[in-house]
Design a protein around this nucleic acid. Sequence first.
DNA 1: CCATGCAGTTAACAACTGTTCTCTGTAATT
DNA 2: AATTACAGAGAACAGTTGTTAACTGCATGG
Lengths: 208, 208
Amino acid sequence: MSHTLGIRQAQKQKTRQALLDAALGLLEDQSLSSLGLREVTRAVGVAPTAFYRHFRSTADLGVALVEEALGSLHPMIEDTVSAAGDSDERIARAVDLIARHVETYPAHVRFIARERHGGVQPVREAIREQLARFAEEVKLALAEHPESKGWSDDDLLMLAGLYVDHMLMAASAFLEALEGSDQDRQRVACVTSRQMRLISIGRHNWLG
Amino acid sequence: MSHTLGIRQAQKQKTRQALLDAALGLLEDQSLSSLGLREVTRAVGVAPTAFYRHFRSTADLGVALVEEALGSLHPMIEDTVSAAGDSDERIARAVDLIARHVETYPAHVRFIARERHGGVQPVREAIREQLARFAEEVKLALAEHPESKGWSDDDLLMLAGLYVDHMLMAASAFLEALEGSDQDRQRVACVTSRQMRLISIGRHNWLG
DNA sequence: CCATGCAGTTAACAACTGTTCTCTGTAATT
DNA sequence: AATTACAGAGAACAGTTGTTAACTGCATGG
């Protein structure tokens, strides 16, 4: 039960991570379905056959990338939607968090936006599953709000889905604006905030 | 000024269309960035070199597909959003139109959803441009509504963008449900309707 | 301390890719 | 009727791809 990985396993995970990183880099201007196994190993500097020690195929690598890109995002989602303050404060906080995340992990965001409807079925399914988990978590957090009095579980999930979809839209918009001017990014933030505010207003008047 | 194309030009456009159709079929389970020129010509039954008579590259073909998939959609958008009736009627009509369109042109819808954030820059740009035109048209139609009294041009465009994005989301959801049961499709229709209603409610209380 | 396991290497395979050049048949032009 | 333009065919190019097999070196467990 040694929790310190042996030299052997450590080296393995290191090259595995190198393969993931290289793939993420190469996916900046192509889709996963055109990513070649040799292309990845060449970028890392290992033999093509070494790839099979870590992944069955590039699709398999894609699924692993989904985990890496979305798996660590749950706590952030959680405390964004369940934060204190009124709606406008929460929206401002959420938009800022999204913008910051896109700046920090642009390749991850690009990968998810690109492969969500991409040409590799297992990867699409993995993303769909993770986003469904997000929606479920957002639903639970929303249920804690006093504004959710009288809302059915189904309606809450519908609203949560709307939020999740829009979060991704906003992330993609920020990504497009990443290579633009500061003004571009600020305009995206402004539009996104107003759109979320409109949804929020719709929420408050849902059963009014 | 003969408006009847000569035999020569007619034959050319016929093979051109065959290339486009074959490509659209092949793109059912891959992305444009992995679509090979030879793959397309093989599916049509012409020599690989014939491809160059019609397109510079597969990216160029992709741009042509964007025109085909979105270019003919403007009138439908127009009369959906500017139709008579109250909000709920308009929403029901819009959702039904989207569902019907996805059933009629599933490959087109899949292509747009896939390549909107795909790996081929010129195609992404072409889609972005068309969607921006949609948003502008929706904005103009919304401005005609009496509910838009007091709305700024900027806010109307923000709302129009929200509608367009959500229309695409809905189309993609319908597409996923296409191979599912009737019940799946009906559930997508139901959720989409409620989400659009929520946005509509947000609209009516925007400056309240 | 030795035997085993296994990450990574090397070499080779048939198949595939985009692109260039040359050629052919025929519709369109003069 | 003769000439031109041009869609498409055919062959060849160097380079790429995924996958298999047999190998090497070294960390690990007995």
